[in-house]
Simulated scan of single mutants.
Amino acid sequence: MFLLSNGTRAYEWGSRAAIPSFLGRDSDGNPVAELWMGTHPLAPSSVEETVGLLTPLVALAGELPFLLKVLAADKPLSLQVHPDTALAAAGFRDEEAAGIPLGAPERSYKDPRRKPEMAYALTTFDTLVGFRPTAEILRILSAIDTPLTKSLGEDLRARPGFKGIVRLVERMLTDPVAPVEIAEVTDACRILAGRSFDIKRAYQTAVEVAEHFPDDVGVVISLFLNRLTLQPGEVAFLGPGVIHAHLSGMCLEVMASSDNVLRAGLTNKHLDPAGLVRCLDKGMSRVARVTPEQWGFSTEIFSPDVEEFALSVTQCSHADPEGTVLPSSGRRILLCTGGEVTLLNERGESLDLARGDSVYAGPDDGSLRIIGIGEVAQAYEPTRRTRQSSMVDLV
């Protein structure tokens, strides 16, 4: 077992206080968006294998198929999708051949892997995810009396369904929408929301997004997306090809070890509207709430039907004086999300953990257990037997 030293990402949408507080540090006043735990080359973790000397985790563990993050958002993230395996491999190959540096801001494909992901809410967490049904979108548009929404509604009635919605998104991304048209939609949404007339929070969401990106066509596209609120401990799974934009809150993200993102708005980062539409044209992937499986008395396992990752969350107390056993005995990353615990392996070695401390454990550590009062999340490689969590589709 080794304590991890992890990198953070200072994206402008991040919270100034949430992750520093989680790590027990003072804020320097700058936004901290993500804490990465894994072997991805853009922000690889290290371990102190020798006192005073950090060793890259990849040298000890090999490349891990999963990446664990803490994400903290104070304002909306970019409107984005992640590619499937075929698109990721082709996009990575093309950008490598073009000589675009891996860390270049115009780079979309950072690796050749797909990126399914799962979000576990640490606070109330709001996100936009997946397209609403055609009928719902038409109801939303019909109440907004602007030339743009009337035109969008006419096009969708002429070509309903998923493909028709994608074509509308493509139209808005390729034929620039004037800021005055976006402002008209925002003003209409503000009036409707103020009258307590809303359809599944669509109008209020557009108003909230416009506070940060008033001239961005993503304000209009947000009307097309489901708004989902996760309470602490609730989990959502997003397959590749699902359009989404997280809005606010703090969560754990466990995902395939990838950083491939195709963006089309709500950001000052590189945009790739054509890449985003290509992902959408592959057809909708699964968007689902994940119902945990109970493992013992103190552990919930969230294991969607993917081969790259699963997540367990274990609580312990003095009611278990011998300690609470954790699932999995393979390669694992553990994160203390609350309290103070002692982590023990089968060799009798131990580590004391407080909130924000993270650990890599390998097969040689065998079964792990925790003693104390606290909570530990664990990302790990699932087996066929553990891939069993039930999922309720959102769309």
Rank of each mutant, 00 (worst) to 15 (best):
Tyr120Glu: 01
Val32Cys: 14
Ile140Phe: 07
Asp94Ala: 15
Val261Asp: 02
Gly14Asp: 01
Leu138Met: 00
Leu152Glu: 05
Leu152Met: 12
Gly161Ala: 11
Asp74Phe: 05
Leu54Trp: 06
Ala97Asn: 06
Arg113Ala: 10
Phe197Met: 15
Ala245Ile: 09
Thr337Trp: 00
Thr8Val: 14
Tyr120Ile: 02
Arg263Ala: 06
Ser15Leu: 07
Val376Gln: 07
Asp111Phe: 14
Met250Phe: 04
Gly362Asp: 02
Ser196Lys: 15
Arg9Tyr: 01
Ile221Glu: 04
Leu67Pro: 08
Arg159Gln: 11
Arg132Trp: 08
Thr342Tyr: 00
Pro31Ser: 12
Arg195Thr: 10
Ala98Lys: 15
Arg227Val: 08
Phe197Leu: 14
Ile100Val: 15
Arg286Trp: 00
Glu293His: 00
Val341Ala: 02
Asp74Ile: 09
Pro321Lys: 10
Ala178Pro: 05
Val129Asn: 02
Ala43Val: 03
Leu344Cys: 02
Lys200Asp: 14
Thr291His: 04
Ala143His: 09
Ala135Pro: 00
Leu335Tyr: 08
Ala10His: 15
Ser312Lys: 06
Asp357Glu: 11
Ala97Arg: 11
Arg139Val: 04
Arg201Met: 07
Gly296Ile: 06
Ile137Leu: 05
Lys269Phe: 11
Ala18Lys: 12
Gly362Phe: 06
Ile140Lys: 07
Pro240Ala: 14
Arg227Thr: 08
Ser248Gly: 04
Asp305Ser: 15
Leu3His: 08
Leu148Met: 06
Ala89Met: 03
Glu234Met: 03
Pro382Met: 11
Val287Cys: 07
Thr299Arg: 07
Gly366Leu: 14
Gly233Trp: 09
Thr39Glu: 03
Arg331Lys: 13
Asp155Thr: 08
Ala43Trp: 00
Glu208Thr: 09
Ser367Trp: 05
Pro304Met: 07
Leu173Ile: 12
Thr39Val: 15
Ser285Leu: 06
Ser108Arg: 00
Leu87Cys: 00
Leu128Cys: 04
Arg107Phe: 02
Arg384Pro: 01
Leu35Gln: 01
Val392Trp: 02
Val217Asn: 08
Glu96Cys: 10
Asn345His: 07
Arg167Ala: 13
Ile182Tyr: 10
Ile221Leu: 14
Phe197Tyr: 15
Leu57Val: 12
Asp365Ala: 14
Gly338Thr: 04
Asp216Trp: 10
Ala10Phe: 08
Val209Ile: 15
Ala310Gln: 09
Asp26Pro: 05
Leu344Phe: 04
Arg195Phe: 12
Gly283Lys: 07
Pro116Lys: 13
Val287Arg: 00
Arg159Pro: 02
Pro147Arg: 10
Phe237Trp: 04
His212Pro: 02
Ser46Trp: 09
Ile137Ala: 01
Ala188Cys: 06
Asn260Leu: 05
Ala104Tyr: 04
Arg355His: 03
Gly338Asp: 02
Arg369Gly: 05
Met391Glu: 14
Ala43Arg: 01
Thr205Val: 11
Gly194Thr: 01
Ala264Cys: 10
Val129Cys: 15
Glu154Val: 09
Pro65Asp: 09
Arg9His: 08
Ala274Thr: 11
Gly339Ala: 08
Arg355Tyr: 01
Ser329Tyr: 03
Leu67Lys: 02
Asp28Arg: 13
Met1Asn: 02
Gln231Met: 06
Ala43Gln: 00
Arg16Phe: 01
His246Val: 13
Ser389Val: 09
